[in-house]
Design a binder for these strands. Structure first.
Lengths: 137, 137
DNA sequence: CAATTACTCTATTAAATCTATAGGCTAATG
DNA sequence: CATTAGCCTATAGATTTAATAGAGTAATTG
């Protein structure tokens, strides 16, 4: 299951992507309209800024805005940034790989093989769905 | 990500399914060979028993054994029993559905629509992979 | 029938993660 | 220079995860 952080983050991004891209969007605006706790949202947006997805502007007329074309931002990227690994086990993660303590031979572990298949299957979908797709759906 | 409980449970089931089905398998046997903390494993197997997947026998010659044909037990069922929902959000879960507090109109929520698609995609794979498949892979 | 074996039940706990809030600070605008 | 709005640090409650301890119960076997 995705964390609330991830759900909030995705909703916020969709919200921002749907607005007129020439003016920044207020945190409080998103908070009210998407029913996301404001302070929690602040932290999430800051995170998305650190990863280069959002930019921000302080002071009057400030707020958050997209740094990238929504058509180039995939759901896979967003979920990884917000939630972490997409894979079901660390030993099968492409971006957050970790060996299992148990499991002496990963190459012949049937669970590993199976979950790699699940990962590829999910990734195929997540990598072709963009933020833009989510704004028009 | 799957919990360790789930990983251990799946490994234990695969281990049991690979043994001669006429004699029960010892907890300690599984624990040693699959490197799973014994006490933790006890609780997991008990869980799988409650859900009717495993049966058990006490005393000498006792242990755990499958109650079902491995070809009829799907990965989807096992993950649900051990880990819970397969869906990425409660509002998109078939077996553990819960409405989002935020989100006034689920029908027009693009996140809901998208994650339902992800769920169907994953389920398609998980429902066709059986415990038997995992034992021979 | 008693000793042994092996699963069962209850309880507890340490650690990690998630969710959320508080309050002061800094930068931009007009 | 006052106001606006994001930034930073700290904290904290709740929940979940992972694991352990120890006594209890049922089945087998000699």
């Amino acid at each position: 299951m995705l964390s609330k952080k991830t759900k909030y983050g995705l909703k916020a991004l969709i919200y921002i992507a749907r607005q007129d891209s020439t003016t920044p969007v207020l945190i409080s605006d998103i908070s009210v309209n998407e029913q996301i706790p404001k302070k929690f949202l602040e932290a999430i947006l800051l995170d998305l800024k650190k990863f280069g997805i959002l930019g921000s502007k302080k002071g009057k007329g400030g707020g958050y805005y997209l740094l990238k074309d929504p058509k180039t931002v995939t759901a896979a990227t967003l979920i990884r940034v917000l939630d972490g690994p997409i894979a079901m086990l660390p030993c099968v993660s492409l971006n957050y790989y970790e060996k299992c303590d148990d499991c002496p031979h990963e190459e012949v572990c049937s669970l590993n093989k199976f979950l790699a298949e699940v990962r590829d299957n999910t990734l195929e979908l997540l990598q072709h769905k963009t933020l833009y797709d989510l704004t028009v759906a």
